[in-house]
Amino acid sequence: MSRERIERELEVLRAGGQKVDYLVGARDAIVYHRLPTDGAALGLPRETDVVVPVPSGYPAAMIDLAGLPVGSPLLCRVRGGTNSQGLIELDGRQWQLASYHPHNGGGGPPWDQTRHGFHTYIDHLIAWLHRLN
C-alpha cells in the first residue's frame, strides 16, 4: 500500500471541494463525505457518507466494495446493499459494507492501477448512489 499515493489521490478530490478522510484502524479506509444520491424522489437522503476499505496490497490490488452507515435507509436500495460484506468500525462509527464491485462486473472498467485510484472510485460511488432500487 502506498500512503503517499493515496494522499495524492485524495488531494485531487479535495481540490474539487470533496471532503475525504483517510482513517487508520483495524482496517484502513477512506470516508467520502456527503456524496449526492438520487434518493430525494424516494423520500431518501439526498446525501450520504460512504466508506471504502483500503485493500491490502493497494494499488496492485483493486479498490472494491462500498459501505454505508449502519441503519442507513439507502442500504436496502443500493446494488449489493442487501448482501452484507461485513461491518467495520472507524472513529466510533459503524459501517456496513455492501457487495458492490464496480471493477469486477459492477459496470465499471477493469481495474488499471496506472489510471484508477480513490480519486476515480468516486465515479462509481456516485453512480451507485444514483441507481437505487
Binding site: Y100, H101, N104, G107, A127, R131
Partner: peptide, 17 residues
C-alpha cells in the same frame, strides 16, 4: 457536473478484501 452510469450492478466477489 455529475456523470453517472446507466448500468450499475453489484458485480462479483472474487476474493476477501
Amino acid at each position: 457536473f455529475l456523470v453517472t452510469r446507466r448500468v450499475v450492478e453489484a458485480g462479483n466477489v472474487t476474493r476477501a478484501n
